[in-house]
Simulated assay, not measured.
Amino acid sequence: MYDVGISDNHLQSMITGCVVLESVSMHIMGFGRLCITSLTLRSITFYGPSKGEGAVTFQELVIEDAPFLERLVTLYPYCSPATIRIIQAPKLEILGSLSQGISTLDTETAFSVQKMVAVSLTSKMHTVKILVLDSIGPNLDSVVDFLKCFPCLQKLYIFPHRGNYVNNVQEYDPLDPMECLEVHLRTVVLRNYNGYTRPVIDFARFFILNAKVLEEVEIGVFSHRKDRCLRRQGRELQVENRASRDAQIGLKMDEETILKHHDRTHDFSMADPFDKPGGRLIHMF
């Protein structure tokens, strides 16, 4: 549904009444709040209208009861609802993109996110395996808070964007281990990498030095680096000290991008709708 004039109550009734509906896309819909109950839905994509004059701002998305929901994806993170509340979605495995555009993410009052910072945590989502984050900075503190909320995460995508860089000096405390980093996280995809800025280097290095079962780190860079620069990147990232000796760390040509095509999310022959052929491999550590 694209730019459809329908009230939130009628849309909720329609989704609930479609007893074989598996996938739904909602683009630039003019409602403030949507509560979804469906016994058949497996995938949802959405984005709200831009916050221009006269636009009805998408304030809240509630997944009240969706026992078969596997994928919940916002295509344009900064046109996302301010609040996403997940009450009952026991099979949810793919979630993204979460960003500063989402001021609150609530799972059975499990945690709230303010500017991508988890501020309270009473329970965790163990079902989510793939998570996509849009981050200004990037901000390591906020990303680590998400890792605590999704302890069984296997694949993490991070799309950092240019902004006010933060001081990413967080140290991993072995006395307070994170289940995600210890036993589950196998792939990290970091886009838009600027290897000349200390906070960005520290951000990438955190995963290389602390993810114990990591198999692959894909780092997207914008330009071809000379051999001297590549050797420096290896030293900066401390690839020789990687926590997982089997981890393959690759620098690839990249372009700043986010998922925009909803059909990938609804194609269940694709185990990961965010996965796509990476750019040309520049160097492998």
Score class of each variant (00 low, 15 high):
Ser142Val: 06
Ile130Pro: 07
Ser135Gly: 08
Thr127Gly: 05
Lys91Ser: 12
Thr107Phe: 14
Met116Ile: 06
Thr122Tyr: 12
Thr127Pro: 07
Ser97Trp: 09
Val144Phe: 03
Thr104Ser: 10
Asn139Tyr: 12
Gly96Asp: 02
Pro77Asp: 14
Glu93Trp: 04
Glu108Ile: 03
Phe111Trp: 04
Phe111Tyr: 10
Pro90Ala: 11
Ile84Cys: 06
Leu131Glu: 04
Asp134Cys: 06
Thr83Pro: 06
Tyr78Asn: 04
Pro90Lys: 13
Gln100His: 07
Val144Thr: 07
Ala118Pro: 08
Tyr76Cys: 12
Pro90Ser: 09
Gln114Cys: 07
Ile87Asp: 05
Val113Thr: 10
Leu92Thr: 00
Leu98Cys: 05
Ala118Cys: 10
Leu140Thr: 00
Leu72His: 14
Leu121Gln: 14
Leu131Ala: 06
Gly101Phe: 03
Leu121Ala: 12
Pro81Asn: 09
Gln88Ser: 10
Pro138Trp: 14
Val73Leu: 01
Val119Asn: 07
Ile136Thr: 13
Ala118Val: 11
Leu140Cys: 02
Cys79Ile: 00
Met125Leu: 15
Thr83Phe: 08
Ser99Cys: 09
Leu133Lys: 09
Thr122Ser: 15
Ile136Gln: 12
Lys91Pro: 03
Phe111Val: 01
His126Lys: 11
Met125Ile: 09
Thr104Val: 13
Thr83Arg: 14
Phe146Ser: 00
Leu75Arg: 14
Ile86Tyr: 03
Ile86Leu: 11
Thr109Phe: 11
Ile84His: 08
Val144Tyr: 15
Val117Tyr: 13
Leu75Pro: 13
Val113Arg: 12
Arg85Phe: 03
Phe146Gln: 02
Ser135Cys: 05
Ser112Glu: 05
Ile87Met: 08
Leu133Asn: 06
Leu92Lys: 02
Arg85Thr: 00
Asn139Leu: 07
Thr83Tyr: 12
Pro138Ala: 07
Gln100Trp: 01
Ala82Asn: 05
Leu140Phe: 02
Leu75His: 13
Val119Arg: 07
Met116Gln: 11
Ala110Asn: 14
Met116Ala: 08
Thr109Met: 11
Asp141Gly: 00
Gln114Glu: 08
Ser112Ala: 10
Leu105Lys: 06
Ile86Lys: 06
Pro81Gly: 02
Val132Thr: 07
Thr122Leu: 14
Ser80Asp: 04
Ala82Phe: 05
Leu105Tyr: 02
Asn139His: 14
